[in-house]
């Protein structure tokens, strides 16, 4: 039984934002709503790492637990989806989510947020699959077309893996074995050496 999962290999992610753009293009997500984003830690310092983050489709999803109108549901292949017709835009899920996945399209008077929008693992929503209404509310339903999320399928370095958790785990395990040990063998350390940031060259003016 497939259990859908994302995995981002921080050793490979080059912060090209291709996944972000692919997501926006696939689902025609409006400006200001980021279903997926790339987070960079220690930007500009040797050893910087990037990771692509979206909804992780938790097994025990906090958003599901806190939603006052119970608009979330989990499909049989482990994708956490929500019903925009039920959503009241309260924003509880945004506070509950450890990944910052829930997005709100509006910011206006009285804290008006609009219906929550988040990564659907390219699985649409409660509307009829591949229908116009489903696309408008949730974006394209790629799972119903026998495809996997656009972000993972187009990742240029194959840092972002998406699909059945077992297969993803196998791919990652094999990759780590090929690298040699752990995750360091292919990473920054091999390319640029382990060490401190280089001291400013002598004579550098500022």
């Amino acid at each position: 039984m497939a259990r859908m999962k994302f995995l981002c290999d921080a050793e490979r992610c080059i912060e090209c934002n291709g996944c972000v753009t692919a997501c926006k293009q696939e689902h025609e997500v409006p400006w200001g709503v980021n279903r997926r984003r790339v987070v960079t830690i220690n930007d500009g310092v040797p050893g910087e790492k990037s990771i692509s983050v979206a909804c992780m489709h938790c097994s025990d999803a906090p958003c599901m637990a806190v939603c006052p109108v119970d608009c979330f549901y989990r499909t049989e292949d482990g994708v956490v989806l929500h019903d925009k017709d039920l959503c009241i835009g309260c924003g509880y899920c945004f506070y509950a989510c450890p990944f910052g996945a829930p997005q709100f399209p509006q910011a206006g008077a009285f804290g008006l947020r609009g219906k929550m929008d988040k990564c659907t693992f390219c699985a649409g929503g409660p509307e009829k699959d591949r229908s116009e209404e489903e696309f408008k509310k949730y974006g394209r339903n790629r799972l119903s077309e026998g495809k996997l999320p656009a972000c993972a399928e187009m990742c240029s370095t194959k840092a972002l893996l998406g699909g059945d958790g077992d297969v993803v785990a196998d791919i990652y395990r094999e990759r780590v074995l090929k690298r040699g040990k752990g995750s360091e063998v292919w990473g920054w350390g091999t390319a640029y050496g382990q060490g401190k940031p280089a001291a400013a060259p002598a004579g550098a003016k500022s």
Binding site: D77, D129, S144
Partner: peptide, 28 residues
């Protein structure tokens, strides 16, 4: 914590078609 238990084709009381209940695309 969910309104109703999971039924096939209905998740926690919400209807959704399962991906494999769709016909494959005519192309590809």
């Amino acid at each position: 914590q969910t309104a109703s238990p999971q039924k096939s084709g209905k998740y926690q009381g919400k209807p959704d078609t399962r991906p494999w209940d769709n016909a494959p695309l005519a192309y590809g």
